[in-house]
Structures are given as structure tokens and as C-alpha cells.
Nucleic acid binder design. Structure first.
Lengths: 215, 215, 215, 215
DNA sequence: CATGAATGAGAATTCATTCAT
DNA sequence: TATGAATGAATTCTCATTCAT
């Protein structure tokens, strides 16, 4: 009986921790990191401030955890889309870029917080991890292409990083509030094309066709 | 009757203002915007807190000024390098990208603050101006290429934005502290190549040669 | 599941709020509004500065609350004394004036702050409310007298305002620190008489008798 | 020659002092004491901040001086109007009250500052002096009336003080900004009547007629 | 284990006063 | 003597963190 009580207690504890983390993420998604005070998160989770500190040693750790999980979710999607499945690396990169865009456009505030909003150092390291994750997705595709002979040999790490930055920045303008009506589909097409261009193909005779693909 | 402010006095006042602005810039370059409290800036400038407020109406205005000037300096250099002078647009873009890299590598924390670190709204608008400036440099080159028939028609604004993000991000990894020994020249070459690839040329038969150019 | 705020906890919170409000009032009563910084009030209440802000959204709101309550207390007494109960309006006005005097003499600095010391706008509106309250007490009595035919028709609003000012100022001299021995009873009698004289009676043959009433 | 030079120098010095004092008064008349920082006064006087401190040991002393002189000016007018000249004391008091009202209505901000706005202690004592001066004007008239047998014996000091307060307060409502259209003449008539009523006459059969006097 | 009132260091800003020129 | 840049203590307000209940 003592055992079961403990089991239930621990389950409840875990559930509370979840609620807090979820509330923290929601708060960031709604108002950005700047709006995410401990008080606000606790209120959103329906717990007291002290409870937050029972589950997380500090605000920084709480958000590090939150960012880590949100990042992981994003990366999982990307990696799923980019997974080897017979398609050429460039094709899978195009799919990854498209997914990246669509998710960012669907939740702009969170996306901005995850990749750009300034936060404290402990959280920052999670942000870097996310960027590195994105980069690795592209780097792997590039490496694969080089190895299979489809792509020219090149500095894949740098190109991958550049691609991540390119995707982020190309979305920043459209994401900024007060921007005129969004032309999401055209934007996505342009970004995907940009991504494809970044892949240094050996023979480029089909370039035109490729670019039509998304126009 | 009343003594007039002498040239000496005015010069000293201007010098103090400069010292404060310089200290603010240094502080950002050393510890980022987050570390740049009014107190810290004043101490660094060797003046009292009140003195900062004699020269700038608010912290936001101080940093807006600082960012504006630093940004303008960067843009001037970029624009100078990208200026029409007989070279093809892509060639000038390569030069611009190279300059961008070299300057960022020379002052990484400042570069990061200028293009990425989140700050308050008044300052943020200066950052956006800088990004827009960078983007325009590339957008103009792309437009020029399209008009001259060298480049395929494309969404130049998006490509330009993507390029700005690409340059920034490709440098972030190497810029982050604790990174292993930097191989700056190779990095710059890769980034320049990336930039060239982003230019959608009409005939691409010389691609290989182009890529050798910087390898 | 979640522990609810107990009555004890809420009672303690309310008590702290009271302590802060009381400390604020005491501070004003001792040193005037000018001396009542947030720091000083907190220290007097035996709490930290932040605690003041947990209970009141701003310094202005704190003092608005404090002034509101102190004012209301004064007005309640005045209105009670001036309530219709068979006595003639002038008689009730005399009683009101007397009460006003006695209370002011009992807490001079507070009285001064409540009716005269300049404070910030949010608080000022409470002061005006008090003056208006006092004025209304007298204005109602005057109106009543006019309607019953006891008093000559006259500008009751102005006379009422003048009476409020008269009472206040007649007390200021005696209230100022360093004033020689106070002869409170004589002072009160004189002020009450002044009040009675301000009532423009239709027949005045009993004036002498009336004035004897309080001499 | 040295003598003349000194003479001229001193004259200039006195003139500067005057300019500063005048600027201080103007500033108070325009924006109240709260707006009268040393910087603002200096600017208004066309001198440097340091110059203010060459002529006055402190801000408090400057404004004490300014208030002293402004007060004296008001008192001089009052005393002139109330001077013995054959008219009955009550008549002269009515004239004094009227003058008081007219001047206050002509320069409300200054009037408010002189009699009510909270300032620092050194200045406060000047304000008290002014009130005492006003009071003395009325007290003298009341004494005179008592001595000549026109008035009942009474506490003249208290009645005089009450009158001063009455005048001030009766004007406060109308002086407050945003007050509906001012009916100055009716207001003055009511206040003068109030003043007359405060004079405890021995025979009062002419009361009705007196009140018509200003209606 | 949850609560939430309390903490207190730190932030930006103001302004009377000083003093080198 | 006039100047005005510089000073720095004081003010209001915020918020991550603690701890008695």
C-alpha cells in the first residue's frame, strides 16, 4: 500500500511538473520570453510560485528544460522529414526547409523565441543546441550527397549553418508583427528554391526545371 | 557679459559624450547588451551616472545612438564594396560577403549584438535598419543581375534576406566562445561560395570554375 | 490536492496590508506627505520595499487608499453630527464645526496633510473629495435653512466652501508647531461663532443671545 | 575709476539677481512650484545654473526670497485698500476681500502657489508670513471696529484667520483647471458678503440692505 | 509537498549642488 | 564673476528566490 501510494504520489508530482513546463511554453508562445516571469508561469499552471521551485531549481533551469523539449520536438519533425527513404538528399532538404517554414509561420512567437529572442545564458545553450540540430539535418544531407557523388565536395558544416540562418532570416521579415498580408506560399517556394540552390550539384542542366518545381 | 561656452568647453562636452558612447559600445562588445546597464557604462566611461543622462535622454536613446552609428559604419563599408564599378553583381556580392565575414570575425560579440541579441524596442528598430541595409545591398545586386540578364528572375527580397541570415549564422558557430581554433580563411571562402551559389545564374556551365575561385 | 489559502494566511496578508497603510498614515501624520517615501513607509511597517508593492500597485495608489479612508472617517463623523434630528440647521452646523475643530486639534499634521499639503495627482483627487464632502455638509445645512425660511436666499455653495476654508485656516495658526500654549476651548468657541455668523438668518434679533451660547 | 567700475559691477550683479528672482516667480506663476527646478529658472533668466548659486545660497533661499517679495506685494495692495480713510472697517474689509479675489482670479497659479502649494520648509515659512499678513489686515479692521464700538467684542485673531481661509477656499473651486465658465462677479459678490457677515455688528437691522449691496 | 507572502538587490531616472575653467 | 558639465544620493518600481505555515 505504501508502495502504491508512493507511485501515485510520484505520478502526481510528474504531472505537476508537466503542467508547469507546459504553462511556461505557452507563456513564451503567447508573449515571448520577456513575458514569462515565474509568477505568470505559476499562475498559468495553476500552482503557487513556490511549487515551481520545488520542481525546478531555478527559472533558468525551467526554461532550459522547456526550450530543450520544444527544440527536440522541432528537430524530430525535421529529422523525420529528412530521413533517408530513397529520395535524393536535395529533395529531402527541400522538404525539410518547407516544414521548417510552415511550422515557423504557424507559431511565430514561439519560433522567434526559440531561435532569436535573447534569454539568459542557461537557456541560450539550448538555443544553440537547436541551431546545431537544424544544422546537422542539413549537414547530413549534404554529406550524403557528397558521398553519393551527387554534390561537389564542399564545407558542408558551413553551408548547413548558412542554410539555417537563411531560413530564419528569410522568415523574420514576414514574422514581424504589422507586416502586410502574408503571402506564405510564395515565400515558402522562394525559400525552398534558395535551399536547393545552396546544394552544389555536380551537373546543373536541370536547374531551370528544379526552380519551376516550387514556383 | 555672460561668458559664452568656449570651444574648449564644447569640445570637452563632445568628448565626454563620445567617451560614453564608446564605453557603451565596448560594454556591448564585451558582455552583450544584457550586461550594459547605465551604471556599468558610466563606470566604464569614468563618469557618474547622472552624466550619462546629461548627454542622452534615456538608456534607450543612448543605445539607439550607439547601434545606429555602429550599424552605419558597417553599412558604409558594405555599400562601398558593392558599388557598381564594372564588376559583375555576383563578383561584388562575393566581395561584400567577404567583408562582412572579416569584420564580424574581428569583433564577434559586437557583431552578434548588432544583428541578433534582443534589446529594447527603441534599439531594436536600429537593428532592423541594419538588417534591412544589409539586405538591400544584396537585393540591389540581385536586381541588377536580373535586369542585365545575368540572373534568372526570382524573389530577390527573400533571397537577399536569406543571404543576410546565412552570413550571420554561418559565423555564429565559429564566433561562439570556446570554439576550437578558428580557420577563418577557409570559412570565409565557404561563405563566399555559398553567396555565389545563391545567385541564380542563367548559364551555369562555369560553376565548377567559380567554386575553385575561392577554395 | 492543491493547498488552499487558509483563513489564517489571508488574515495575515490583510494584517500586513493594514500595517502598511497604517504606517503610511503615521508617516504622513508625523512628517507630512513629503516625508513619506516608499522606503520610509516600509521601514515603519517593518516590511521590505517589495512588500509594499505586493499590497499596493504604486505609491500613488497606496496613498490614495490611505487618504480615502482617513477622509471617509472624518466625513462620517461630520455627517453623523450634522444629521437632521429636529435641531435647526445652524445648530447642527455649529456642532459640525466643533467636531471638525476637535478632531483637527487632536491630529494636526494629519489634518493639514488631508486638507492642504500638496501631493501627487492621484492622491490630490482624494483630498478634493474630502473638501467637497465637508462643503456638502455645510451646503446641505444652508439649503435646508433657506428652504425652511430660516435663512436668506444666498450662494450656498460659495458660503459652504468659505466655511470649510475658514475652519481650516483658523486652525492652522494654532496648529503650527511652536505656537504658544493652546487655548483650545476658546478657539473652538470662536470658530463655532464664526460659523453661526456665516448663516444669513432672516431675523437677527437673537444674535447677541446666540453668541453668548458659546462664549 | 575703480570706484565707478565697482559701482557698475555691483549694479550689474544686482540686475542679474533681479532677473533670476523674476524668472523664478514667472516659472511658479506658469507651472507652479513643482515645475520650478533650478535648471528651468536659470534658463528662463538667461544665466547658467552656477550663476543662480552665486546669487542665492540654495534653491530654498531663492524661493524664500521670491515668495517673500511676491507676498509683500500682495500685502501692500491689501493694506493700501484697508487703510483708515473715514470709511467704516467693514466697508474697508469688503474692499480688501474684493481686491484679494480679483488678484487671485487674475493669476490663479501664482495665487495657489503662494497660499497652498506644498513647498520646502524654508519657503513654507514665507507662506505662513503671507497668511499672517492677510490675517493682520482683517484683524486690524476688526480691532478697530471693536474699539470704535461698531462691533461686538470677539476673538478678532481667529475671525481674521478664518476669513483668510474662507477667501482662499472659496476661490479654490473656481480656480481649479477645467472648471466650467467662471462667473467671477457673482463669486466676488458672494465672498464679499460672506466677509461682511463675519463682522459681528452691534445693531443688525440693516442686514438685508447690506447683503443687497453686492448682489 | 504546496502555498504565497515576504524579501532585497538592482534597475532606470531625477535634480540640487559643486567646481575647474 | 559666469559658466555648465559633472556629480551622486535618492526615488520609484521589478522580480527571481526563500521559507514559515
Amino acid at each position: 500500500m505504501a508502495y502504491r501510494a508512493t507511485e501515485r504520489t510520484e505520478a502526481r508530482k510528474a504531472a505537476t511538473r508537466e503542467r508547469i513546463a507546459a504553462a511556461a511554453l505557452d507563456q513564451v508562445a503567447d508573449g515571448g520570453y520577456a513575458s514569462a516571469g515565474v509568477q505568470a508561469v505559476a499562475a498559468r499552471a495553476g500552482v503557487a510560485v513556490g511549487t515551481v521551485y520545488r520542481h525546478f531549481p531555478s527559472k533558468a533551469e525551467l526554461f532550459a528544460d522547456v526550450f530543450r523539449r520544444a527544440s527536440q520536438r522541432e528537430l524530430d519533425v525535421m529529422e523525420e522529414v529528412a530521413r533517408p527513404d530513397g529520395r535524393a538528399p536535395a529533395e529531402r532538404a527541400a522538404a525539410a526547409a518547407e516544414v521548417f517554414c510552415r511550422r515557423a509561420l504557424a507559431g511565430p512567437v514561439l519560433a522567434y523565441s526559440l531561435i532569436a529572442e535573447p534569454v539568459d545564458p542557461a537557456v541560450e545553450s539550448e538555443r544553440l543546441r537547436l541551431r546545431r540540430g537544424y544544422r546537422d539535418v542539413f549537414a547530413n544531407l549534404l554529406e550524403e550527397g557528397v558521398e553519393s557523388g551527387e554534390l561537389e565536395p564542399h564545407d558542408t558544416a558551413t553551408v548547413a549553418a548558412a542554410l539555417v540562418g537563411a531560413l530564419g532570416e528569410a522568415l523574420v521579415g514576414p514574422l514581424s508583427p504589422g507586416h502586410r498580408q502574408r503571402r506564405d506560399e510564395a515565400l515558402i517556394a522562394a525559400i525552398v528554391n534558395f535551399t536547393l540552390n545552396a546544394f552544389p550539384r555536380k551537373e546543373r542542366t536541370d536547374d531551370g526545371a528544379r526552380q519551376q518545381q516550387y514556383a
